[in-house]
Design a binder for these strands. Structure first.
Length: 208
DNA sequence: AAGAGTTTCAACCGCAGTTCG
DNA sequence: ACGAACTGCGGTTGAAACTCT
C-alpha cells in the first residue's frame, strides 16, 4: 500500500471549504484549529482555518468599506497604540485586525503621497481629512454583505448571507454538542456528511 | 480601447506568547 | 520545570479590480 501524503491546500478558499469550516467551527467552537483542520478533512492548516474564520466567516463581521467615522477612529487609536491592530480592532466591532491593517497601509500610502506632492508644490499639509472626495455621501455600503467582488464570476462570487442561509437551513442542532456525540456520528449533521472527505475516506478504507 | 499604475483585499509567513501533558 | 503543540499577532505578498492616461 502506498501512502500518499496529500499536500496542504493553499490560496483562496472555495465556497465548499467555507461551508465545511463553518460547520465544524459550530461543532467544536472557535478553538483547536489544528484539530478542526484535521477532522474537517479540509486540507488546510489550523492556522489557515482560523484566519479564514476570523477574517471572513465569523458572523457579525461588517462587510464593505469602512465608514469615515471608523476611519477616523482607526487613525486616532493608531496614534495612541501604534500598530496594535488587534487592539484597535476590538474598538471597532465587526472589523478585523487584518482589515484595519490593510486600511492603514493604504491610508499611509495616500498620506505619504500627499505629503510628497505638497512638499514639492509647497502647499499646506493641514488637510488631515481622512475622507476621500465623494465618500461622505456615498459612504458605507456595509449593508451589502456580499463579498468583495461579486461582479467577478470567479471563485469568490458567493455571499456570506448565502453561506449562512445554507447552514441555518441545514441545522437544527444544539449549540454545543459533546465530543461523544460528535464521535459517534453527529454524522447526520447533513453538511458534514455531504462535505467531509474524511467520511468518504472512511468508506474507501472499508472497501479495501 | 488598451496598457500602466494604483488600490483593495485575502491569504501566507514567522515569531512570540500561552497552554498542556 | 520543560518541551511540544497550539494560538494570536503583525508584517508582507500577490492577485484581482479599479482608475488614469
Amino acid at each position: 500500500m502506498v501512502m500518499v501524503k496529500e499536500e496542504l491546500r493553499k490560496g483562496p478558499w472555495t465556497e465548499q471549504e467555507d461551508l465545511q469550516l463553518v460547520c465544524f467551527v459550530r461543532l467544536f467552537g472557535e478553538r483547536r484549529w489544528d484539530f478542526i483542520a484535521k477532522v474537517s478533512g479540509l486540507n488546510r492548516t489550523g492556522k489557515s482555518c482560523r484566519l479564514r474564520w476570523v477574517n471572513y466567516l465569523h458572523p457579525g463581521l461588517k462587510r464593505g468599506r469602512m465608514t469615515p467615522q471608523e476611519k477616523r477612529l482607526v487613525v486616532e487609536l493608531h496614534s495612541i497604540w501604534g500598530n496594535r491592530w488587534s487592539l484597535i480592532a476590538r474598538k471597532l466591532p465587526g472589523r478585523t485586525d487584518n482589515e484595519i491593517k490593510n486600511y492603514w497601509r493604504t491610508h499611509l500610502r495616500k498620506m505619504t503621497k500627499k505629503q510628497r506632492r505638497s512638499n514639492s508644490s509647497d502647499s499646506s499639509l493641514h488637510d488631515h481629512s481622512l475622507v476621500e472626495p465623494g465618500e461622505l455621501n456615498s459612504s458605507s455600503d456595509c449593508s451589502s454583505s456580499s463579498l468583495a467582488s461579486e461582479k467577478n464570476g470567479g471563485v469568490k462570487s458567493y455571499s456570506m448571507d448565502k453561506i449562512w442561509n445554507e447552514i441555518d437551513s441545514s441545522e437544527e442542532i444544539s449549540s454545543e454538542p459533546s465530543v461523544e456525540e460528535v464521535s459517534q456520528g453527529v454524522a447526520d449533521f447533513s453538511c458534514m456528511l455531504m462535505l467531509s472527505p474524511l467520511w468518504k475516506m472512511d468508506d474507501e478504507l472499508r472497501m479495501l
